[in-house]
């Protein structure tokens, strides 16, 4: 069950007034949330998103919550666009745009952050995003279907590293539009710093098998 009011795509223009996120990401988000990879019953206007959120300063354990994302009240032109969207845009671009749309709603709700710029760079599905001035970098990514459940984590690490190549701290966001066990939509939104990333990597290395540790200690 959702922990708060529905986050509506129609509010994107007012909460991120400097970018036309509804035009840019609205149809892709609606497609990924309601049509593909999971077709919802006709007339459904919202979908639950399981959120794993690690806020600034990026230490401690992430918090889990359930948010509702809706698309009621969006202009008819955006809904009409969904009819042709999968025939005009490639799958990767739709997924990345949808992820930006979901991230934009969550980052505003959870961090009160505003996105300043969204520009595609290159010929693929890469984007340059700017948020809250220079101080916060954000890397966003989407996965259409994560059948086994581990691609999301791997992508999160990749994006976390990417953020830190540009800035000492920032957000990494990965949205999987079908995640086990229930093909639910999941978003991992993590604030990362070089220290927090290093700490996580150290924790990972320290989790060696008990037998091995004991044999080393015996030596």
């Amino acid at each position: 069950m959702s922990t708060g009011p529905t986050l509506e795509l129609r509010d994107l223009p007012s909460i991120h007034s400097k970018v036309s996120l509804l035009h840019h990401c609205g149809p892709s988000a609606i497609v990924r949330l309601s049509l593909d990879p999971t077709q919802l019953p006709s007339g459904t206007m919202a979908r639950e998103v399981l959120v794993e959120w690690l806020s600034c300063p990026g230490s401690g354990d992430p918090r889990q919550s359930v948010e509702n994302i809706g698309w009621s009240g969006v202009p008819q032109s955006i809904l009409d666009a969904c009819e042709t969207w999968t025939a005009t845009k490639n799958e990767k671009v739709i997924t990345e745009e949808a992820a930006i749309g979901v991230m934009a709603l969550l980052v505003h709700r959870l961090e009160s952050a505003e996105i300043l710029s969204v520009l595609q760079i290159g010929s693929g599905g890469d984007y340059l995003l700017a948020m809250n001035g220079q101080t916060v970098q954000i890397e966003s990514s989407g996965i259409r279907e994560d059948d086994r459940g581990y691609h999301t984590n791997a992508r999160l690490k990749e994006k976390a590293n990417q953020v830190l190549t540009k800035s000492p701290a920032g957000f990494a966001s990965v949205v999987a539009f079908s995640h086990p066990p229930n093909r639910s939509v999941c978003c991992r939104l993590h604030f990362v710093t070089s220290q927090s990333l290093a700490l996580k990597q150290t924790k990972g290395r320290n989790k060696r098998p008990r037998q091995m540790r004991n044999s080393k200690e015996r030596k």
Binding site: S17, K18, V19, S20, L21, H23, H24, P27, S77, I78, D80, A81, T84, W85, T88, K89, E97, L116, S117, V118, L119, Q120
Partner: peptide, 16 residues
């Protein structure tokens, strides 16, 4: 954000 807005409008236009 002006360039982003123009690009977004371009993206929507391409999509339809």
């Amino acid at each position: 954000g002006a360039a982003s807005k123009l690009a977004a409008e371009g993206s929507l236009a391409l999509g339809v």
